[in-house]
Design a protein around this nucleic acid. Structure first.
Length: 259
DNA sequence: CGTGTTTGACCAGCGC
DNA sequence: GCGCTGGTCAAACACG
């Protein structure tokens, strides 16, 4: 997750730079900016030059502010990432020996799917999970429940071991989960749920959790990225100063482009 | 020392 | 009955 946050921020900073440079503005709008340029009104010309100078300065300020904002954001995210690394990286849990799933830490995934099939007493479904890292030794699967591994088996039709989990949040909860790598695409983890939870979900924060806590990579990336971008965008658009500065920057950009 | 994980052993179901 | 396979158990082990 932390990598994604950093990547997202870098992307945002890049995009914000490029958007200022590459926004398409029609030429007639630029011409219309300062009034009738065909006139020989010296006063108006001076006024325009002054206006351009002022907008140029504002644009420069805006770029600096944007840069500082992205830097601060990056710093904040790196701090958050380092904190998570320091807490999870000191784990002395046993490392995997001869199985790709031995070191897998599963919190379940696709929480929205966990509530499906709740009408039947013995439900069954398959979740396809894309692990974040391809070295395949570390997964984080979140579905809002706590799971306890009680067995592992290599099945005949799949060279990858199948792990068996029980819901450990409630002792009486009958739900079980089987997790195994897809035989077709080893980058896909297939989780099969059986039964229905008789308790509510366990809310886990990023980097937090039971003893199966890992180094992260927990959120579904596209949704999380979108949320992050939306939040940043909305916070920026709510700022009237930012709006004014952005308008000024656009004006300046169009002026410079068509000089 | 408590808790969770690993992994070999055991059990049940199924096909022959 | 026998062998194969998937699912579960539980002792040993690792870790905090």
């Amino acid at each position: 997750m932390e990598f994604t946050l950093l990547d997202t921020c870098l992307d945002l900073s890049l995009n914000s730079t490029t958007s200022l440079d590459e926004l398409p503005i029609k030429q007639q709008e630029v011409i219309g900016l300062g009034g009738d340029m065909s006139s020989n009104d010296e006063g108006a010309s001076d006024h325009l030059a002054e206006e351009i100078k002022r907008l140029s300065g504002e644009n420069k300020k805006l770029r600096e502010m944007l840069g500082v904002m992205c830097d601060n954001y990056n710093t904040l995210l790196r701090k958050h990432y380092m904190n998570n690394c320091s807490t999870s990286g000191t784990s002395r849990k046993r490392k995997p020996q001869n199985s790709e799933l031995l070191d897998a830490h599963f919190h379940g995934i696709n929480s929205e799917l966990s509530d499906k099939d709740s009408s039947c007493n013995k439900s069954r479904r398959h979740d396809h999970i894309q692990p974040k890292n391809n070295n395949s030794t570390l997964y984080l699967v979140k579905d809002g429940y706590e799971w306890r591994k009680y067995g592992q088996k290599v099945t005949r039709d799949n060279p990858y071991p199948r792990a068996y989990f029980k819901c450990s949040f409630a002792p009486t909860c009958p739900v079980k989960k089987k997790v195994q790598r897809s035989v077709d695409d080893k980058s896909i983890i297939v989780a099969t749920y059986e039964g229905e939870h008789n308790h509510s979900k366990v809310v886990l924060e990023a980097g937090e959790g039971s003893s199966t806590t890992t180094t992260g990579h927990s959120h579904k990336q596209p949704e999380f990225n979108k949320l992050l971008i939306d939040q940043m965008a909305s916070s920026l658009t709510r700022d009237p100063q930012f709006k004014a500065a952005l308008a000024a920057a656009l004006n300046e950009k169009t002026t410079l482009t068509h000089k």
